[in-house]
Amino acid sequence: MNEQLIALDRVTVRKTRTVLLDSVSLAVARGELVGIIGPNGAGKTTLLNVIAGFERFEGVLSLFGRPETHRRSRESRLRVGYIPQSFPVDPSFPILAVEAVMTGAIGRTGLFRSPGRRQKEEAMALMETMRLSHLAARPLGQLSGGERQKVSLARAILQRPDILLMDEPTANLDIAVQKEVLDLVDEIHRKEALTVLFVTHDFTMLPVAMGRAVLLDHGRMLFDGDIDTALSGETLTRLFRYPLETFRQKGRRFISYD
C-alpha cells in the first residue's frame, strides 16, 4: 500500500526571470490526503499545474512510477482529476450542471463514441449521492460559487481519477458551505480511495482526513510533515512572517493573532 503515486524531484518552474517554484521535491503515497498550504503567491497553483500537466518545468515528475512532462497521453490525463481555483462561466452559456458533470467522462468515453443515456444516468446517480440532484437541470452559469464548486467536484469524480488535485475548493464560500464541501471531500477520499492534494491558505477549515501538510512560500518548500507540526504557531509564524498562535478545541484548530 506504500506505492508512490506522485513524486517530484527538484522541480523548478521559471517564467521570464522570476522563479515560481524553486527545486521542490515531494513524494505522495496512494490514499494520502495532503494539504498544500501557503500565503497568496506562494506557488500553490503552479505546483498543482505542474502535476496536472499544464505547466512546463525543469526537474523530474513521476506519476504512477513513470516520468511525465507537460505533454500527456489521454490515459495519463484521465488518471489525474483537476479542480481549478475558479473558472468563469457566462450566465447565459448553454450548458446545464449535469452536462458540465458529464464532460468529466468524455475523455474516458473516447472519440467517435456517443455518450448515450448510460453516461447521463451515471452523472445523475453521482450527483444524487453527492446530494446535488436539485442542481442538475440548472444552467451552470447561474449557480452560486459554492454550488458551482460542488458541480466541479462531481465533474472531476466522474472522470474516475486516481489522483485528485483541488485548488482552494473552499475559497469564497460561507462557513456552512465550506463544511459541506469538506465533508464531500472526506467522503470521496474514503469511498473512492483517492489520493488528494488539497490547496488552501486557510488552516482552520480542513478535511478531517488531512494528516499531512506541505508549506510553500515564495516557491520554496518550508515544511513537509504531519499536520499538527505544520500548523503549530511556530511554523505558521515563520510562514506568514507574522506572530501567530494556534490552539485546538473539540478537534478544530483555531488561530489567534494580535
Binding site: 499544464f54 490515459e75 490525463r77 483537476y82 462561466v89 475523455g107 474516458r108 465533474r155
Partner: peptide, 13 residues
C-alpha cells in the same frame, strides 16, 4: 467550448 483547460484535464484532445 465550456472550458478548454478542464477539457484537456479530462483527456479530451
Amino acid at each position: 467550448l465550456f472550458n478548454r483547460r478542464l477539457a484537456r484535464a479530462s483527456g479530451v484532445p
